[in-house]
Amino acid sequence: MTALPEPLPDRMPDAMPDLKLLRLFDVLYGTRSVTRAAEQLGQSQPTVSIWLGRLREQLGDPLFVRTPSGMQPTPRADALIGPTRSILESLRRLAAQDDAFDPATARRRLRICMTDASHITLLPPLLARVRAEAPGVQLAATRMDGDTAQALASGEADLAVGYAPWLETGIHQQTLFQQDWVCLASPTHPRLARRRNLNMDLSLDLYQAEPHVTIAAGTGAHLLDAALARAGVVRTVQLELPSFLGLAPIISATDLLATLPRQIGETLATLGGLKVFDCPVPVETFPVRQHWHARYHQDPGNQWLRGLMRELFRA
């Protein structure tokens, strides 16, 4: 007698992780940080910790172990990440339904990796255009770092914009514009205010004599350091900041100089009423590019976003 096939279960097994836990696993594997995973998922850190606890219980493995260099995956996590990402990609394709992308009616979250400088210079005009042309599209800006390539490959990010020479394998790129370097000073700087009013350049001697503020992780900072070393210029650095946040009011209220890429420099000068000088040290220019993964080269939403970036910012 031929055996009858067993009926399909009415529901999935209780131990099967739900979608949010699979997404957490993918993001945490890429970031190695509960805090950064929470930022990318738009959740609080305690919530993400609770989700991770559930996932560990369901899979019967710690999955990630805390170390001085971050949350490192266990061998079981290494074995599961490939199948997990395949599942997530299949679900994304299933949810897409229609390949067409109509900005006026689209409901989608577009994620862009950006530098701190781009948050100030590129994001405001981009947001204005997106709100005007695609009111149902939500933008999410995340940091540009060593995990950006994986974020683009997995679809966790749609685009990366900035100076990122390490993005190569499988990544398309398009140059938007070149950046040179400028110096910012207070409009009431005791030794520079009159010089700017008379349209006089900032001399190299005066540049070396003045105190400076630097951005530790500024875009292209290594290019500036190399140029100063080649020219034998030694600056007196009295303040180091982790980002451009707060730079404009500090310059406005002190006699400190800041040397930074032109676009962020001129934007901060406009916002804070600062003086702009050409940098007296010849510093190598660098390209600001948009980057996307080959897997999403034909994605209509990705193409629309790239076209908008090209229209707004390409020189």
Rank of each mutant, 00 (worst) to 15 (best):
M1P: 14
M1R: 13
T2E: 10
A3M: 10
E6L: 15
P9W: 05
R11L: 02
M12C: 02
M12F: 08
P13G: 07
D14I: 06
M16R: 06
D18L: 13
R23Q: 15
R23Y: 13
F25A: 15
F25H: 14
Y29V: 07
G30I: 10
T31E: 15
V34Y: 11
L41F: 09
L41R: 12
Q43L: 15
S49H: 05
I50G: 02
W51V: 01
G53T: 01
P62D: 03
V65H: 01
R76S: 11
D78C: 15
I81T: 10
T84C: 15
I87T: 09
L88R: 03
S90G: 12
Q97W: 12
D102S: 08
D102G: 01
T105P: 08
R107S: 11
R109V: 15
I112S: 06
D116S: 09
A117K: 01
L123M: 14
P124M: 00
P124A: 00
E133S: 05
P135Q: 04
L139D: 00
L139Q: 04
R143D: 14
Q150P: 05
Q150K: 08
A153D: 10
E156R: 08
A157S: 12
A157L: 08
A160F: 02
A160E: 05
Y163W: 13
T169G: 09
G170S: 03
L176F: 01
Q179I: 00
L184M: 08
A185N: 06
P187R: 01
P190K: 06
R195Q: 13
M200Y: 04
L202F: 05
L202P: 06
L206E: 11
H212L: 00
V213T: 10
T214D: 05
A217H: 14
G220N: 12
L223K: 09
L223C: 01
D225V: 12
A227P: 05
G232F: 02
G232M: 08
V237H: 10
Q238C: 11
L239F: 07
P242W: 04
S243P: 01
A253F: 02
L256I: 06
T259W: 00
T259G: 06
Q263L: 14
I264Y: 00
G273I: 02
V281D: 04
E284V: 03
F286P: 00
F286M: 10
H291P: 00
H293V: 08
P300F: 02
G301N: 06
W304T: 03
R310L: 11
